[in-house]
C-alpha cells in the first residue's frame, strides 16, 4: 500500500491483481453486462491509484477500494441517466427469461438476474441490499425521493423473485419453504 502511495508501478499492479476479481464482481452487479462492468472497473482503479493518498487507514483497505468502485459505478449510472434518458423499466421486466440453466442458485445466476434489472432498480437494489445504504442516502445520491427509492427496491425484489422462480421452478419454492 505504501508502494502504491509512492506510485510504485509494481506495487500498484500487485494491488490490482489482488483485488481485481472481487472488484469486478462488484462492478458486474452495477452493470448491464461484462463490458460495462469492466469499463467501470477500469475507471475505478484509475481513481484508486490517483486518490490513494486520501486513504488514511480508516477501515479496511479493501473496503475503501470497494467504496471507490461503488461510487464509480454510481457516477457512471448518473452520467448514463443524463445522456441516455433511459428507463423503460417494464421492458426489462417483460423480457423473456430463456437461456438460464436450471439448477442450484449460484452467484453467477443471481448476477445474471440482477444485470437484467433496469438500471434504476439495479442501482437501488445493490445500494440498499448489498452495500447497506439507507433509502435516504440512496435518494440523495441518485437524485430521487426516499419514497421512490423504497418503491423501486420493492419493485426490484419482485422482479428478481419472478426471474429466480423462472430459473428454479419448484426448486426455489421448496427452498423458501
Amino acid at each position: 500500500m505504501e508502494g502504491c502511495k509512492a506510485g510504485d508501478r509494481k506495487m500498484q499492479e500487485l494491488l490490482y491483481k489482488q483485488t481485481v476479481s472481487k472488484m469486478l464482481a462488484v462492478c458486474m452487479r452495477y452493470a448491464k453486462d461484462r463490458m460495462e462492468a469492466e469499463d467501470i472497473l477500469q475507471m475505478g482503479y484509475i481513481k484508486i491509484f490517483q486518490k490513494i493518498e486520501a486513504y488514511r487507514g480508516d477501515g479496511s483497505f479493501e473496503g475503501w477500494i470497494r467504496r471507490v468502485m461503488v461510487n464509480t459505478a454510481i457516477e457512471s449510472y448518473r452520467k448514463n441517466l443524463r445522456s441516455l434518458n433511459v428507463v423503460e423499466i417494464d421492458e426489462a421486466y417483460e423480457q423473456p427469461s430463456t437461456g438460464f440453466d436450471f439448477g442450484t442458485l449460484g452467484m453467477q445466476d443471481l448476477m445474471k438476474v440482477i444485470q437484467k434489472l433496469a438500471d434504476g432498480y439495479r442501482m437501488v437494489f445493490n445500494m440498499y441490499v448489498i452495500e447497506g445504504y439507507s433509502h435516504k442516502e440512496i435518494g440523495e445520491t441518485l437524485g430521487i425521493s426516499e419514497g421512490a427509492s423504497k418503491s423501486q427496491l420493492s419493485r426490484a425484489r419482485a422482479i428478481l423473485k419472478e426471474e429466480i422462480i423462472k430459473m428454479e421452478g419448484f426448486g426455489y419454492a421448496t427452498y423458501t419453504g
Binding site: 508501478r9 500498484q12 499492479e13 490490482y16 491483481k17 481485481v20 476479481s21 472481487k22 469486478l24 464482481a25 462488484v26 458486474m28 452487479r29 461484462r34 469492466e38 472497473l41 477500469q42 482503479y45 484509475i46 491509484f49 490517483q50 442458485l105 449460484g106 452467484m107 443471481l110 448476477m111 440482477i114 437494489f125 440498499y128 441490499v129 448489498i130 425484489r157 428478481l160 423473485k161 423458501t176
Partner: peptide, 30 residues
C-alpha cells in the same frame, strides 16, 4: 431472507476479468 441470499452470494464474489485490463489502466495512470 431474500436480501440475505443476495448478500451472501455477493459478499466474497470474485469474477476474473476476461481481458487484461491492467495494461489499459496502467497506460491511463502513467
Amino acid at each position: 431472507d431474500f436480501d440475505q441470499l443476495f448478500k451472501n452470494a455477493f459478499e466474497d464474489a470474485e469474477i476474473t476479468p476476461s481481458r487484461n485490463l491492467w495494461s489499459s489502466i496502467e497506460s491511463e495512470i502513467v
